[in-house]
Design a protein around this nucleic acid. Structure first.
Lengths: 157, 157
DNA sequence: GTGATTGCAAATCTTTTGCACTAAA
DNA sequence: TTTAGTGCAAAAGATTTGCAATCAC
């Protein structure tokens, strides 16, 4: 909730094996342990890619490619497993934007998205800028888990 | 926009070949022609299932099963084609609710959805009850196509 | 050690595609 | 007839699964 894992650690080099990343590595390991997940090499690798920098939106395919580029072998199946485990642990949020492909958002706090339909690009809208009013009562026995707002964009003109 | 295709025609019998459905059949055929689509047997069949009653949310699989149950053979590939053609013609709207599967909504007017995560059930929220405020300016050269609001529900307590 | 985790390949599921056949205009 | 539309089966893409090998504790 309040460890400053972000910033200043990932910039300047792409290799996760670099010496300067050791602190990030253990911060991630700690975070995983706290979430009840064993900090295996693969989970730490993916955790560093996901949480080592700014908030981001990733698909399994993208994350897999990044891990390989960073010189760490992780199988695609493990990337899928890990993304779901992280989601279950509240470290990620799964996004349903377009059918066919799952995206995961490292920002699990309340916020919404611009989606550019032409090229599938996703952008955060800060959580406090949008307000949703006039929500009817949920059906009996149900309560609101959360509200997803997707603002779909097309080229102007 | 104003043909009363709905109600009173689909109730009472499941077979689309029934005599009483002839008026619906030609209403659908007309609607397809106006949309620039040839009213083939398959399209009329699917159109009757989709537009013959209340507004609904369907997947390709569901609609295919219904057509077969109604005694009309339509291939699954044709169901997919048809759903996309109808969507292109503005007769349906595609929904991105959960990844992995596409849903289509026969209600193309402005409205939003409750989504019950536990069983994947979708419910309409009337278009005029929800208001979204505080939308930031879209990025340069982009304009808002439309805004999807999905209110995710979980069991209370 | 022991149980959790991983990798691989095969399996599954949804959706798309190619092409010969059929039907609408 | 002419062109759009359909069916089938194969292909493609995303994700899951089974199981033996490997790793964290």
């Amino acid at each position: 909730m309040n460890e400053d894992i972000s910033d200043d650690l990932t910039s300047g080099d792409d290799s996760l094996a670099e010496a300067g990343l050791a602190p990030l590595q253990s911060a991630i390991a700690k975070r995983l342990r706290e979430a009840g997940l064993r900090p295996t090499r693969q989970r730490v690798t993916l955790g560093m890619l996901l949480f080592g920098g700014e908030d981001r939106h990733v698909s399994a395919e993208m994350l897999h490619a990044e891990a390989l580029t960073a010189g760490e072998h992780v199988s695609l199946a493990t990337v899928y497993n890990t993304l779901h485990q992280f989601t279950g642990a509240g470290l990620l949020r799964e996004l349903a934007i377009d059918g066919g492909k799952a995206y995961f958002d490292t920002n699990t706090s309340n916020h919404n998205h611009f989606f550019i339909e032409a090229d599938g690009e996703l952008m955060d809208i800060p959580g406090d800028s949008i307000r949703v009013d006039g929500l009817p009562e949920p059906p009996e026995g149900m309560k609101v888990s959360h509200i997803d707002v997707v603002v779909r964009l097309v080229p102007k003109g």
